[in-house]
Nucleic acid binder design. Sequence first.
DNA 1: CAGTGGTCTAGACCACTGG
DNA 2: CAGTGGTCTAGACCACTGC
Lengths: 255, 255
Amino acid sequence: MSDTLNAASLQGSLTPAFSPLYQQIKGLILQSLQSGEWKPGEAIPSEMDLAARFRVSQGTVRKAIDELSADNLVVRRQGKGTFVATHAERQVQYRFLKLQPDNGNVQSEGPAARTIIDCKRLRASADVARALSLRTGDSVLQVRRVLSFSGVPTILEDLWLPGTPFKGLTAERLSSHQGAMYAMFETEFGVRMVRADESIRAITPDAEQAALLSVTTTTPLLSVERVAYTYNDTPMELRRGLYRTDTHHYRNALS
Amino acid sequence: MSDTLNAASLQGSLTPAFSPLYQQIKGLILQSLQSGEWKPGEAIPSEMDLAARFRVSQGTVRKAIDELSADNLVVRRQGKGTFVATHAERQVQYRFLKLQPDNGNVQSEGPAARTIIDCKRLRASADVARALSLRTGDSVLQVRRVLSFSGVPTILEDLWLPGTPFKGLTAERLSSHQGAMYAMFETEFGVRMVRADESIRAITPDAEQAALLSVTTTTPLLSVERVAYTYNDTPMELRRGLYRTDTHHYRNALS
DNA sequence: CAGTGGTCTAGACCACTGG
DNA sequence: CAGTGGTCTAGACCACTGC
């Protein structure tokens, strides 16, 4: 039954590169996710349907979906179905934002006030190009914004997006989608952020940064540099954030 | 066959609190891990043996172990067996240390030089007691040490341990086990750290801290406060670290 | 070679959702 | 009620390790 699919074991590498069936199924489902066959928020076919489609048992499809679910690419809901993950849901709105208020939980805090300071198209500098796998001089979009909590400016972010996938992004469109940036990327540009890496340092701001955050140039701040990736480990965003940590802290769970 | 074990579904809560068999098995295995029936580094019984012991199918035991493996409590090795996870292996030596050199990978860096500055027994202050679930005034051990990379002092750590489980810990014993602190906790005190939470801020050091790290009191540093837990979410260590981020950075993967 | 974990199947049944 | 994901089983076979 697995005759056709296990062709992966025929490739001529030294180690036979055995790939279990469920991994191959996972790859196929992944392709459908990338190609947009199922849109974020939509249900994918039931396990039975997928099993029939790939000529495999339900258990094998199940294990494939288990991994996609563990990777946060898909969300299972018992009795309802399996859905393409999205940043649009309240629950996962701030999945990548690790800054939390010192007292009280995340929920207790009111919604962030977002101010777009700047949004312009320019040519990628060497380091921005490297982070986004572009060539120096390629068109990129640069956005600067401030997030305030309880009226206190707390986060200053500069972010860079590759020009081509984000053609047509303007300050107006950014502001109109009150905040939820990654959710907007999905609906407006078909770009879904899947994972990210962050590098954190302690720095002091320059005069301009200090002014935007209402602090002095001697105030230590967290510098958080993030590269966010879509499917296939394609980098799609570089973000440099400065976090005030007088009332908030960066929280991380190690396991 | 599952008659005896599914007794969990009989407890008198409003929601029937259905607990799948494999979760109950996971709990039983967890108990054996806590009780020390199998020591860190040792193999646990084979899936077949455990299945026989618990009167369950191999698949059910497998799913239980799958989760324990995902929680890093256990390590599977195909063809050999399943082993109790330990901090003693080279590979996971620095599992909880997220600081990395800016250039090159973790391996390229020589081993850290560790200097014990202080190690004394004292009474827990209010905040230390709260973090360790003790009462103010309970006996705790306080250790201060500096880690240097390539001769540069980079990390200054203060850590507090509950006095009772760590009876007999002295500066000498700390130094003699060149570094690998969590591994030593396992072999010498039977305490295995399972997970941890970190809160990160940017701060400037006081005069004493600055001197120990060879920086000025205006140098911004990362303040990393960690609470580490054993089995059962019991807090067993409070650690306050100051990290220099001029040549290193705190790295975090978001997914 | 025997023993371990890893994959795959087919089928039964359970828990949850919604019409 | 039918349809979904979730659990559990029994058995076959595969990949890897070490004797």
